[in-house]
Write a protein that binds this DNA or RNA. Sequence first.
DNA 1: ACCTTTTACGCGAACGTTCGTCCACCCCTC
DNA 2: GAGGGGTGGACGAACGTTCGCGTAAAAGGT
Lengths: 361, 361
Amino acid sequence: MARRYVSVKEIAAKAGVSFQTASKVLNGGNVRVSAETAARIMAVAEKLGYRPNTVARSLVQQSTSTIGLVTGDLTDGALSQFAVAAERTARRHEHAVLIGNMAVHDEDGTAVLQMLIDRRVDGIIAAAPQLEGDTAVADLLRRYVPAVSLHHVPGGGVPLVGSNHRDGARLATRHLLSLGHTRIGTVTGPFRRHVVRSRLHGYEDALRQAGIEPGEDLAVEADWTPGTAAAATRLLLQRDPEMTAIFVHSDTMAIGVLSALAAAGRSVPGDVAVVSCDDMPFAEYLTPSLSSLRVPFAQTGERAVELLLSSIGGQDPPAEPVLLPVELIVRGSCGSPAPASAARPLPAQTSAPAAPRTEDS
Amino acid sequence: MARRYVSVKEIAAKAGVSFQTASKVLNGGNVRVSAETAARIMAVAEKLGYRPNTVARSLVQQSTSTIGLVTGDLTDGALSQFAVAAERTARRHEHAVLIGNMAVHDEDGTAVLQMLIDRRVDGIIAAAPQLEGDTAVADLLRRYVPAVSLHHVPGGGVPLVGSNHRDGARLATRHLLSLGHTRIGTVTGPFRRHVVRSRLHGYEDALRQAGIEPGEDLAVEADWTPGTAAAATRLLLQRDPEMTAIFVHSDTMAIGVLSALAAAGRSVPGDVAVVSCDDMPFAEYLTPSLSSLRVPFAQTGERAVELLLSSIGGQDPPAEPVLLPVELIVRGSCGSPAPASAARPLPAQTSAPAAPRTEDS
DNA sequence: ACCTTTTACGCGAACGTTCGTCCACCCCTC
DNA sequence: GAGGGGTGGACGAACGTTCGCGTAAAAGGT
């Protein structure tokens, strides 16, 4: 191992030309060289296994062909789907991805971001919801290179990509209402998150449209883990023993919800119907199979990278957030009369007006 | 945005010194400068927000302080735990992580690896089990920079870090045997994977030690997804309706196993006991809560990076694979008489001799 | 007052590229 | 046989650093 890298100078020497000429031949630009010299250079390069040094290239071209990806906990299925798609898309466009993961909550967002900037990434994708309130991070995001964010950035100025969570929640809640439920609880993520508030609004929208005033005690906060979701469920059952449906904000939490319901002796969907969010791959195989809002994480990753790259290329990013539609996947857990895997796309024209931007992403 | 980066030359000019002097002051090396000039330079740098250009630095120092991480599908909870810990550890040691994810199976491993090498990473961590048979990848892994692998590398020469899966499987199977089960099926990952074969060997070890000849038809292959695991479970039930226990190779697959058992009207653990592998965070919250072998993914990531960094630093990597111990977490799904969360560490002295290296990792 | 040592910097070179300009030919052409 | 227009390739410069050595001026010694 540790064999020395071969530089263009070496191959130039062996081919008997100046290194600049070799460089021109090798990067395939418009060269003014005879076919034979070119062939000779190529042959030597081939034989020696020449690979251009991208760091030198980056230095002169003032571009690293690398994007930085700062994420929240990648252990989360949703974020990892996003990251995988983003990396894939970047690579398809000849860009590498430098990753900055913020696993723990007390980690310093600016430090992670600064590390990426110090490495002169061409652009940054922010996918760390925990940073959505951080103004120092927001400043960095605006200051150096083009950026795209998945979450709200205080002060704006950074293009957003996300899903229409308000519409999604409205859709899910409306589905439960259409099944005859009127006492619908919800187990949510942390209230301080935009996505959670968007979903709460959608949930309330649907209830009000059905003439039901949403009770504040029927929305209980959890922290995305099954454990807290189970606790939240117990609290809901205690507050309203007549509750017959739960809208939960993630499939992982739904595992906790199902577990708590089972422990309380409530059958699903017989006693309590459950609809969740995310539609992780395992949702279909839970017992009972879980109805869930499919959030297009992979598409979001793809779009985010494409947006970023075009922004790096000098194009103006969209001023409005790009919101991808979510889709309700109906399965066993909500006890729908149509228990088939009927996917119902969101109707384009919703009666409620489009929600303001800060509420949706 | 897109504010120009400030270089050391600019700050030198403003401070009235040569840029080399400024450089010496700023990188804190042993400088021979007066305290006042140093202070002046620092002040200017501070004011202008100077950040050294790491790509230029990399060029002269022949080191990027970056490691490459090539992974299999990061969407998998196990791999993402590993990756998160690896990135964290790398960052703690002032190294960035360039990621190459191989989401889809037909992706070209050498291309991903070559991309990292072209970017002159200082070392590479391979965590893509799907590449374990790829000799071209193995050659790349050996050739340029230090590497550490999670999976077996054909031809050797790359230090390995992993878990003792054979011991783990033996432990799990033995636990089921101790509960009185004699007809124990297993739902495995793809047979071609080393980890799967190691676990099969451990499973067979335990059965033979108990005087039971493992029946070939009681080991059914799946592909890590709940769907195929459910199918495998149905096949097991059909082959041996008297089967009373299942050892399944991942928690995600266990979801499918539980689902298939429920659909077949078998209660868990009443009719069929289930022990799984991985101990993902959700395992505890499945219904029933899942007994599982805890695999130390995070520790593995940490160790892998530490090993790689010391290897980059010039130290000889260990010739023998580093195998971390697994631990059986007993919960409800195996119907253990001690349903408490009693964790039983693997006894140090196993009657069977240490398994050969290629079987364990 | 001269030589030596120290202090405080400057300076050239190198890392491996890309890019634009410059120049030495060779082949025509009138 | 001098001017003209390609061809084919050399060459200098730049990107932003780090590193080692060179060297003025100031300080110290006899």
